[in-house]
Amino acid sequence: VKKMAKAIMADPNKADEVYKKWADKGYTLTQMSNFLKSKTAGKYDRVYNGYVIHLD
């Protein structure tokens, strides 16, 4: 998940494709939050927020 999150950060155009894969795998927002937690607070906030919007 972190590898794909980094791919989104490097190229935001990949976001919809990645979010669809995550949704197809049934990842919940709680799971995504836990996967994307980082020592650098807020590092993956943009990715998480994008997934929230995708699921909505």
Rank of each mutant, 00 (worst) to 15 (best):
N49G: 08
Q31V: 07
R46S: 15
K43F: 11
Y48Q: 04
K25M: 15
I8L: 07
I8V: 11
L55C: 06
G50N: 03
L55V: 04
G42P: 02
G42E: 07
A23K: 09
L55K: 02
Y27W: 07
D11V: 05
M4H: 06
E17G: 10
V52H: 07
W22C: 00
A23Q: 11
A5I: 05
E17D: 10
L29Y: 05
Y51C: 01
V52P: 01
K37M: 10
Y19K: 01
Y51I: 03
F35I: 09
Q31F: 07
K6A: 14
K39G: 14
A10E: 12
K21M: 15
Y27S: 02
A7Q: 13
G50V: 05
N49E: 14
F35W: 15
K25D: 10
L55N: 02
D45I: 06
K37Y: 11
K21I: 15
L55F: 05
K21F: 15
G26E: 06
G50R: 02
S33E: 12
N34A: 12
H54R: 04
T40A: 09
K6F: 09
I53G: 06
Y19L: 00
K39W: 08
V47M: 02
K39A: 11
I53S: 12
G50E: 06
H54G: 02
D56E: 15
M4R: 04
D16G: 12
K2D: 04
A41I: 13
V1I: 13
K2R: 11
L29V: 10
Y19I: 03
Y27N: 00
K14T: 09
G26W: 04
I53T: 12
N34T: 12
D24H: 10
G42T: 06
M4D: 15
A5S: 03
K39M: 08
K2H: 06
P12K: 06
Y27D: 00
F35H: 06
M4T: 03
K25N: 11
V1M: 06
R46H: 12
D56Y: 15
M4V: 06
A41M: 10
T40R: 10
K37S: 11
Y44T: 00
S33Y: 14
N49M: 15
Y44L: 04
V18C: 04
K3N: 10
K25A: 15
W22V: 00
G42C: 07
T28W: 02
F35C: 08
D16V: 12
K20W: 04
S38V: 08
L29S: 07
Y48L: 15
H54S: 05
Y48C: 04
D45P: 01
A10R: 15
A7G: 06
Y44I: 03
L55I: 08
D45V: 06
D24F: 09
A41G: 09
A15S: 11
V52F: 06
L29N: 04
K37V: 09
I8Y: 04
V1H: 03
D11H: 09
N13P: 04
Q31M: 13
R46Y: 12
T28H: 02
M32H: 01
K3M: 12
W22I: 01
V47P: 01
D11Y: 08
K6Y: 08
I8M: 06
F35V: 07
Q31K: 05
K43G: 04
V18D: 00
K25W: 15
D16N: 12
S33K: 15
G50H: 04
W22P: 00
A41P: 15
Y19F: 10
K39F: 09
N49Q: 14
D24Q: 13
T30W: 11
D24Y: 09
K14R: 12
K14Q: 10
V47A: 05
I53R: 13
N34G: 11
G50S: 04
V52D: 03
K20V: 08
V47E: 03
V52A: 14
T28G: 06
I53N: 13
H54V: 05
D45A: 10
K37G: 07
S38H: 08
A10L: 13
I53E: 14
K21Y: 15
L36W: 03
L55E: 01
V18I: 15
T40V: 12
D24W: 08
D16K: 11
R46M: 15
P12I: 08
N49L: 14
K6T: 07
A10H: 11
L55G: 00
A23T: 08
K37A: 12
V18N: 02
V1W: 04
K3R: 12
M32G: 01
L29M: 07
A7W: 13
K25C: 15
K20E: 07
K14A: 09
L29E: 05
Y19Q: 00
D16C: 11
G42M: 05
M9D: 02
Y44C: 04
M32S: 05
D16F: 14
Y51M: 01
L36H: 01
D45L: 08
W22D: 00
A10P: 02
A7L: 15
Y48M: 12
